[in-house]
Write a protein that binds this DNA or RNA. Structure first.
Lengths: 265, 265
DNA sequence: GAGTGGTCTAGACCACATG
DNA sequence: ATGTGGTCTAGACCACTCG
């Protein structure tokens, strides 16, 4: 295991071929927002396929928010946006690379210590149980871009305690150890930069920050990681597509007391 | 037109029945995070169905982030989160009702006037072209919850100029006029409350706000609305599920100059 | 009425997980 | 070896849009 994640399925599936082809055609301007795509029948011919794979391809493109489909009409292109992948969500490094930037990091500290109340709550361990916490400054082309606070359960964190967290990818190390990430829940909110945040990011205290909380788990629902990322709100924003008739994995919810406090301070 | 949106498909489809059943079982605790769902074969029997509808149901539940699926193993429940619907995203009123709160609004002003540069950019009209703009304070159980700034293209906005924007739903009026919303792109960012924001929300200037930009369009990609919502960051946050192997409609991106300025001020 | 996507059937084979 | 979900085929009928 872990193998399945490093060496994913071969991409020889028909529907993957179709998706790749259409997505490329949307990105390079062959089809532009508002344009109609070929009919399913035409795509079946073009890719020598039955309707199944064609419809699976369209379904996934609709989920991404790239196209709109409907009875009695051809599917149309909605946007050329390049949505995120699971890896680009889990890992800042992967995300920066996909933007053509050079990822870097400077570890402020890493420690094995008892979980405080908030951390214990999110990691679903008992308060006081030993966890591995760290504070890192993340860099893009050597410029500070985010303050990263992570907490791991002890059995996960042990794998990175003797790892040089300034040189490589934590998630790659964990993957090699057989830690399979399957699901992520992100919490997006706004806050003011603390003195520590401001010092690390090189901005004024009280500046607006975009805060991304992250709880990652495996297939069985075991919590593998709890993280808190803080970005200068002037640097970036999160974007989200929603198409009528397609489920959206996002929702707005009132804050629930402590659930939004620091993981590790 | 419009009709299709007010009177959606009947929900007698097999896969809808299956989804409703499983979702209910997840919400009421029959299946809890980490639990295995029945196998597809069992669901086929239970709902007297072939695999198609069963697989479509599982696919949509996976898109919502509720379950994890994979070769050789049964599907497992990941979370009980209640994700948003298209309507709850488009309309604050719908969202508040789904939370069991009483929606309200107080219009500060509404006007027909030339589009400024930013508004024109987002509505894809030429600068100076007449648009309909408004500023409303949104209420939940009579408490201020958001500052709402909206701009409509003239042909859309004309429908609401002679409408009492304090009493009913704008989107319902537009729906009745045949304006079909199909796609929404949201931009989530953080900012500090301006004096106007602070006064309306009853908070201190400089307080952190969660800012939700919204651009809505129809099936042909015509922009129907450009809106800017500002919430007290201490009141709420956005949440987002991501499951490995399922496309995510969200992404992080650097700010692009002016694209994040006010729609109407 | 012709074309289109939405739903469904009844099979088949494959890749993977587990015991 | 067995059971599981992932992929695919080759049909069918329906609901909807549009000329």
């Amino acid at each position: 295991m872990g193998q399945a994640a490093t060496m994913p399925r071969k991409t020889s599936q028909r529907y993957e071929t179709i998706i790749t082809h259409i997505r490329a055609a949307i990105q390079d301007g062959t089809y532009r927002p508002g344009d109609e795509l070929p009919s399913e029948a035409e795509l079946c011919q073009q890719f020598d396929s039955s309707r199944g794979p064609v419809r699976q391809a369209m379904s996934l493109l609709r989920t991404e928010g790239l196209i709109s489909t409907g009875r009695g009409r051809r599917s149309t292109v909605l946007t050329t946006a390049a949505t995120g992948t699971f890896d680009s969500i889990l890992s800042i490094s992967e995300w920066l690379v996909s933007l053509g930037k050079e990822p870097g990091q400077r570890t402020e500290w890493i420690a094995r210590r008892p979980a405080d109340e908030i951390t214990a709550q999110h990691l679903k361990v008992t308060e006081g149980e030993k966890v591995v916490s760290m504070l890192r400054l993340r860099l893009a082309d050597d410029e500070p871009i985010a303050v990263e606070r992570i907490a791991f359960p002890a059995e996960i964190g042990q794998h990175i305690l003797d790892f040089d967290t300034d040189s490589g990818s934590i998630h790659r190390v964990l993957l090699d150890k057989g830690v399979d990430f399957e699901s992520i829940t992100r919490t997006v909110s706004a806050m003011l930069a603390t003195d520590e945040d401001a010092r690390l990011l090189g901005i004024a205290p009280g500046s607006p920050l975009l805060r991304l909380g992250l709880v990652a788990s495996d297939k069985q629902g075991h919590i593998l990681e709890f993280a808190d990322y803080r970005y200068n709100a002037e640097d970036l924003a999160m974007h989200l597509n929603s198409v009528r008739g397609t489920p959206t994995p996002a929702w707005l919810a009132p804050h629930e007391g402590v659930s939004d406090d620091l993981p590790a301070s």
